[in-house]
Computed example of a mutant assay.
Amino acid sequence: MNELEKNELIETNAVLQKSLTKENDKYYGNLLIYIRIMVFFRDVKKSEELLLEVLRDILDAQEQGLSAEEYFGENPKEVADDIIKQLPINLLDTVKIVLTALAIYIILSILPELISPDEGLDIGSLLIHGSYLTVMAIFALWLLGISLYRFKDKLSKLVLLLLVGLGVSFGFYLSFLVSTPLKVNLSGNLGIATIILISAIVLYLFYKEKDKKLWAPFLPIIVTSAILGILTRIGVFSELLSSKEGKIGIGIILGILLLLQYAFIFLTSKQANK
């Protein structure tokens, strides 16, 4: 799949959506989310092409005074399912998406894991935890997709939210339970060099990323973790930060940054939905 071409389709779609009326925007918006989620095992680029065709049809109908519901019917799920059936299976794209999600998790998690130089980096635990959370993310997206047209009452949505919350909570609990022999000792200069290398990779990826608002909330905790990880490997700071008070201080700092991260993510998603 040509990633650049796919991104151009998505950008064109976003621009044209601005011309929709409020009613048509809601109709098409739900259709768009549903299809993008439910085409997980199918050709993503082809789905974006078909979504663009549907959007242009709605805009043409809008110019003639017809709403999207009048043009496509009162059952948008049927329209969406018909579109999905037209799409060829593309397992390669699916594997790429899963591996990319796992890689992003590991990159975002590895620096906080490296703060303590004595515990070592448990690569096996990172892979297991990352795989679980990747599956949970796919499951949560699937629930979001089916809830658009099937579960519209507040009680059903609350049950789905609690289900996802329990799954994510278990995932965090799992990180404390799982320990594997695949540990790497990254104390001293080797640890400092590793932290600097990973930080450089993260900052480079952020610099190259077009939508920086999506990843900006993660930067404070990543940069702080990198600084703390380096300081815990340097003489004077090592003694201070490895003390009971130092560990409590690190925990408080990371806790505050996590809360700020979630707040930034919430505000960013809220602005994106306006």
Results as ranks from 00 to 15, higher is better:
residue 218 F to N: 00
residue 127 L to M: 04
residue 175 S to Q: 13
residue 140 A to H: 09
residue 200 A to I: 00
residue 164 V to K: 06
residue 203 L to N: 01
residue 198 I to Q: 04
residue 145 G to N: 07
residue 163 L to A: 13
residue 226 A to D: 03
residue 135 V to E: 05
residue 228 L to T: 06
residue 150 R to T: 09
residue 137 A to P: 07
residue 134 T to Y: 08
residue 167 G to A: 10
residue 150 R to P: 05
residue 183 K to C: 06
residue 231 L to T: 06
residue 180 T to S: 03
residue 165 G to S: 13
residue 167 G to Q: 07
residue 169 S to D: 04
residue 126 L to C: 02
residue 233 R to K: 08
residue 131 S to A: 14
residue 202 V to H: 05
residue 208 K to A: 11
residue 239 E to A: 12
residue 195 I to R: 00
residue 228 L to I: 02
residue 226 A to F: 01
residue 158 L to Y: 13
residue 155 L to A: 10
residue 216 A to F: 11
residue 181 P to Y: 09
residue 226 A to L: 05
residue 137 A to I: 12
residue 142 W to C: 09
residue 128 I to S: 00
residue 234 I to M: 13
residue 194 T to E: 00
residue 125 S to H: 05
residue 149 Y to S: 08
residue 191 G to D: 03
residue 212 K to L: 14
residue 161 L to C: 15
residue 231 L to P: 03
residue 238 S to H: 13
residue 149 Y to C: 07
residue 229 G to W: 01
residue 127 L to F: 08
residue 212 K to W: 13
residue 227 I to K: 04
residue 142 W to I: 12
residue 140 A to K: 07
residue 160 L to R: 11
residue 151 F to R: 10
residue 165 G to C: 07
residue 133 L to P: 13
residue 152 K to F: 14
residue 233 R to T: 04
residue 207 Y to W: 14
residue 217 P to K: 04
residue 137 A to M: 14
residue 149 Y to M: 09
residue 173 Y to N: 07
residue 132 Y to I: 08
residue 158 L to W: 12
residue 170 F to I: 01
residue 233 R to H: 04
residue 167 G to S: 11
residue 148 L to N: 11
residue 179 S to M: 06
residue 204 Y to K: 11
residue 134 T to E: 10
residue 202 V to T: 12
residue 217 P to F: 00
residue 174 L to M: 09
residue 141 L to D: 11
residue 131 S to C: 05
residue 204 Y to V: 11
residue 223 V to C: 08
